[in-house]
Design a binder for these strands. Structure first.
Lengths: 209, 209
DNA sequence: GTTTAAAGTGACACAACTGTCACTTTAATG
DNA sequence: CATTAAAGTGACAGTTGTGTCACTTTAAAC
């Protein structure tokens, strides 16, 4: 059973306000630690023991909120995805394709681990329990919503006669999202890096002829 | 201690030829299973138990060849990298930048998991034992060699006045390698997929003006 | 057939993670 | 100050993985 993790105020059977003992960690603490440990150890390497140590609570305490790690991880992903989607929808406020492209690229760079997280999400077995299945279904719904939003973005690019029509939309979107995963082994300054990435996405590696 | 895994013929102290019992699995069986399980479960999820089950031998038998999974994994990676490098060096036999680019892209698509494997390689702790450290050092040497080979490829592109000089080499190479990792969610046919990716890398998503 | 040495087995002790639960702590409420 | 209920704890049993080792199996060599 998942309890309200936001509000500490709860009500007993008679509807009388009661205050519980103060939490040792906030929802943000929990999700931040989850993210960090997931990226560090991967899905199979992530454990409640690691998480409990990181948050400085006992392992048992975590089971008050989640029955197992799948439930926690999908819940965290849902949280991240909802934040990302909220931001992404602001793209429609930008005028013109190139403005929207700039916006999208900056957004993706500020959520640069989303690609890794999607992969980790795919590793989670569906049949763990009902809650996990619900979370995964919800995540799929959000992914679809994201795709629809980005289709509008590409549609604008085509209307403005800027996009090469012979390249499938899926390739363009995949290419844009994948770009944040390119490892900057030589520590090229961030501004140069982003500018170069943008140039590659727009015009490729060849000299304009 | 790592024994010869290639030849079954061994010699005793007096130099007399002796034949050992036949192996239940070949080096290829071993590495193929290792690859598959690594890609499926990731570094931390990979275990000797899984591997032994997959090869249909006892766990104990594996310890005859490798002291631990780090030793096995780095050995497998070295093997893959050496194969890849051998193939890559054939790039110099191709005439002209565009020919070489075609060759490189095809090669990378045929080793499409190399990107994932490099990431997994980074997760292996260095200080496990001497053998692991040696393998990792050797891997680094091969990565450098690979980079040098690719620098020649880019140099040719610049000499032929085809490459945009304002884009850092690391970005171009990063893009080429990363492109195989773009997930083909909509199952676009392979030939269309590769052609589109190539078009993106060469000229970007914008219409040529 | 006997010898030899590698290949393979299964059991052991140890360590880590899981899920549960009775119990303690805390702080607001009455 | 007694009550309440959530927050948190630590111990327990169960499972899975680790590394080792004495032992058995195999097949060539003599």
């Amino acid at each position: 059973m998942l309890f309200s993790i936001v509000s500490i105020i709860v009500y007993n059977r008679l509807g009388v306000k009661k205050m519980a003992r103060e939490r040792k960690f906030s929802k943000d603490d929990l999700f931040q630690a989850t993210e960090q440990l997931l990226l560090m150890h991967g899905y199979e390497g992530f454990t409640f023991s690691l998480l409990a140590d990181d948050l400085d609570v006992s392992r048992g305490a975590l089971y008050k909120y989640y029955e197992n790690k799948e439930e926690l991880i999908t819940d965290y992903m849902l949280y991240e995805m909802e934040h990302f989607l909220t931001k992404l929808k602001e793209i429609e406020l930008r005028d013109g394709f190139e403005e929207q492209f700039d916006f999208l690229l900056n957004l993706i760079f500020s959520y640069s681990d989303i690609q890794k997280m999607i992969k980790i999400g795919q590793q989670i077995p569906v049949m763990v329990n009902k809650k996990v299945k619900e979370n995964k279904d919800q995540l799929d719904k959000h992914l679809l919503e994201m795709y629809l939003c980005l289709q509008n973005f590409l549609k604008l690019g085509k209307e403005e006669k800027k996009l090469n029509p012979s390249i499938p939309e899926a390739v363009i979107l995949g290419y844009i999202f994948q770009s944040v995963a390119i490892p900057n082994h030589f520590n090229i300054p961030h501004s140069v890096w982003v500018r170069s990435i943008k140039e590659m996405i727009c015009h490729g590696m060849f000299i304009k002829t």
